[in-house]
């Protein structure tokens, strides 16, 4: 009973906390005091027009971008200048990029096992076993020996997801994972993400795939000009947006 209670408590724990996060690029104010929290196991989709700060926000969460004011607490660790904190957080946060960013000089298998062997210090055999499991999970176990350039875009993005999952992260960040893909490949990547969401992974996804948001997200965040303008469950967000900007945005994309 005790264990179960603790599990429940952990699940409802806030795993990401952003309080009044500001970010400037030179003089450009990209994030203007963003505050939000994400619970463990929650699937959050961030929508918004380009330049609204969506990507910047999720990139501050693993500190690919540095925020200059406010605080971000991920898995109980506050993001500060301390390099050890940053590396500790990056181990727990996986990220998938729009342009895949697979390492072209390494095979699919090496792409996936690199971080577990170098950062987590797993044995090669253990890392490869996990990698094969993950490749099977994303549906391309037969591509393990190939190099990224030999794969289609959709396959590359699935490898990128497997690579991030190999570190057994608690949180996954997706930065427009399907925006560089042909329409027929978008589905195969979204299917993997759907499966991942149903497995209870905490996910923060920037995407333009409203279908995915509607179906999978627990909550939709709408950003505009560096601020969160609306935060609501998808059913509510898509049918009855309260904010004017959100209404305009939805009328344009739907």
């Amino acid at each position: 009973m005790e264990i179960e209670e603790r599990n429940i408590q952990q699940e409802t724990e806030d795993i990401i906390i952003c309080r009044d996060v500001h970010k400037w690029y030179g003089n450009f104010h990209a994030l203007k005091g963003v505050s939000t929290t994400v619970k463990s196991g929650e699937v959050v989709v961030i929508l918004g027009p380009s330049g609204s700060g969506k990507s910047t926000l999720i990139r501050t969460i693993n500190r690919l971008e540095q925020h200059q004011r406010g605080e971000i607490i991920v898995d109980g660790i506050e993001l500060s200048g301390d390099v050890r904190n940053i590396d500790a957080i990056r181990r727990e946060v996986g990220m998938v990029f729009q342009s895949f960013n697979l390492f072209p000089h390494l095979s699919v298998m090496q792409n996936i096992t690199l971080a577990p062997t170098k950062v987590r210090h797993w044995s090669k055999a253990q890392a490869e076993e996990v990698a094969m499991e993950l490749l099977t999970r994303v549906g391309i176990p037969e591509q393990a020996a190939k190099f990224p350039a030999e794969l289609s875009g959709g396959q590359q993005q699935r490898v990128a997801i497997a690579r991030a999952l190999a570190m057994q992260p608690k949180i996954m960040l997706f930065d427009e994972p399907t925006s560089a893909l042909d329409p027929e490949m978008i589905k195969e990547v979204l299917d993997v993400m759907r499966e991942l969401a149903s497995s209870g992974m905490t996910m923060l996804t920037v995407t333009h795939e409203t279908g995915f948001a509607r179906e999978v997200a627990d909550r939709v965040i709408m950003m505009d000009e560096g601020n969160i303008v609306e935060e609501a469950p998808p059913g509510e967000f898509f049918t009855n947006p309260k904010n004017e900007r959100a209404q305009l945005f939805l009328s344009q994309i739907l």
Partner: peptide, 15 residues
């Protein structure tokens, strides 16, 4: 090199 290469490596926790 595409800056995404180093970003991807850092995002995986590589020092």
């Amino acid at each position: 090199l595409h800056p995404g290469q180093a970003e991807a490596a850092r995002a995986l926790g590589l020092p």
